[in-house]
Amino acid sequence: SSASTSAAPASSAPAPAPPFNQETLQQRLQALIEGARESWTYAIFWQSSYDYSGASVLGWGDGYYKGDEEKGRGKSKTTSSAAEQEHRKKVLRELNSLISGSAPSADDSVDAVDEEVTDTEWFFLVSMTQSFVNGGGLPGQAFFNSSPVWVAGADSLGSSTCERARQGQIFGLQTIVCIPSENGVVELGSTEVIFESSDLMNKVRVLFNFSN
């Protein structure tokens, strides 16, 4: 239910909403999670734009990963095998060198990569490569219908028709919520079961109403 490429506005397509400041977007995501009573693991803003054909797509806008602090890093659950962990660490090492502009080195492995890459960290990282056509996946459904999608419970996620929900369940999530805003969709995920809250939806409407 997701497209594999990110979108650039086509010159003949309708003008998308003006891009908003990356820093304030990060602050809004952080405020949403840190100010919540519930324990959310991450928040992602999927930004609405258009692909080369003018079709509406949701692509990565920004994300804030909090993790599962109560559980402590050492106790974070991972279902990954040793080979999978090596793969994740290798990818992280390469991403680290991509960002820092240097070749992967022993030093890199000491500070950021040698620690286990948890399932939720990996789910969050992989999310950066994804985008959703209008109506596709949980974010696409929420945006297309202008209506929140709230999936709570491992069974509900695991039996969802959406690939992203099923992937989330495999990587230890128990709740995924997608709340539409003017220019995109705010997605929150948690390793705990969190039931629907109008308070959270109101916060999203206030924090992500970019025209104000």
Binding site: S6, Y65, R73, L92, L95
Partner: peptide, 26 residues
């Protein structure tokens, strides 16, 4: 990794930096 779009680099850099902080505080 070389295919990671430029627009997502800021998010990635922030994630890696915060991960490093979490490691140091653990």
């Amino acid at each position: 990794p070389s295919a990671v779009p430029q627009a997502r680099k800021a998010s990635l850099a922030r994630f890696l930096e915060k991960r490093k902080e979490r490691m140091m505080n653990a």
